[in-house]
Design a protein around this nucleic acid. Structure first.
Length: 259
DNA sequence: ATGGTCGAAACTCGA
């Protein structure tokens, strides 16, 4: 099963480019972030026409996540537990049954800038809520995938210019520690299970020629439960599409799972 | 040190 996560930065602006990529890559299961759309305004029919089931958790203008799947999406849950007052659409999960049942979570973790400040406090609180949900999911002892835009640069080697991110919410020590607290529950960073060393990025800013200078960061991740990590057969970053017309500032991270 | 670019939607904010 080919599984991807892709921050598309607006479904209305990206529908055409997304269809092109889906036709080429033919993923079975995709987590989308930053749909920037309400559920009603999301162009479901375009993706249903490509043979995907689709579930969205959107809001007007900002944030918003969605799941696309060639197999039915079962037991869909929207919203990250732990704060009934949180109105930001950043979490959706569902079960997909192939050879194995997989619990697939799509997440758009808060950016957190400027730090310090209320947005950074929200990011860290959100990460603690995510840790609690990740721990619950581990207890199922089933394959679990936490896929999305984490807005966390895990280590200096995950940035072309780490010094430029020293004071940024994506790289501050508290952000990295909160990310490690989730990993250390027993999850595997799928990309780092397969690839060592610097120079691998999933995001290049639109500004200052970041793509042309390869000034990127690795902030889109898939964390795998032990039962999912056992099934990992490969990982790729579809970097090439960043150079196309009207690209997202992120590119897809794709894994092959024997499920 | 600054400004540089996008998307959604509205005359600005979030990234």
């Amino acid at each position: 099963m080919k599984i991807a996560t892709f921050n598309i930065n607006g479904i209305k602006a990206r529908a055409e480019a997304l269809v092109t990529w889906l036709r080429e890559a033919e993923p079975d299961l995709v987590a989308l972030q930053e749909i920037k759309s309400t559920d009603e305004a999301f162009p479901h029919e375009i993706f249903e026409g490509l043979g995907y089931f689709i579930e969205t958790h959107g809001q007007k203008s900002f944030n918003g996540v969605a799941l696309l799947s060639k197999l039915p999406l079962e037991d869909v849950e929207r919203g990250l537990p732990g704060d009934d007052g949180d109105e930001q659409a950043r979490w959706i999960e569902a079960t997909v049954v192939g050879k194995r049942a997989v619990r697939f979570c799509g997440l758009y973790l808060p950016n957190g800038n400027p730090a310090p400040g209320p947005k950074y406090d929200y990011k860290l609180a959100w990460m603690e809520r995510m840790r609690a949900r990740a721990a619950e999911l581990l207890a199922s002892e089933e394959p679990v995938i936490l896929a999305g835009d984490y807005n966390v640069i895990p280590q200096d080697e995950d940035a072309a210019k780490p010094e430029a991110w020293r004071e940024d919410a994506l790289a501050l020590p508290d952000s990295r520690a909160a990310f490690r607290r989730i990993v250390n529950l027993g999850y595997t960073d799928a990309f780092r299970a397969e690839v060592e060393g610097p120079g691998h990025y999933t995001f290049w800013d639109y500004q200052a020629g970041a793509w042309q200078r390869n000034n990127g960061i690795r902030i889109d991740h898939m964390l795998l439960s032990p039962q999912a990590a056992d099934l990992l057969r490969g990982v790729t970053i579809d970097k090439e599409i960043r150079g196309r017309d009207k690209p997202s500032d992120h590119v897809p991270l794709v894994i092959e799972l024997d499920a």
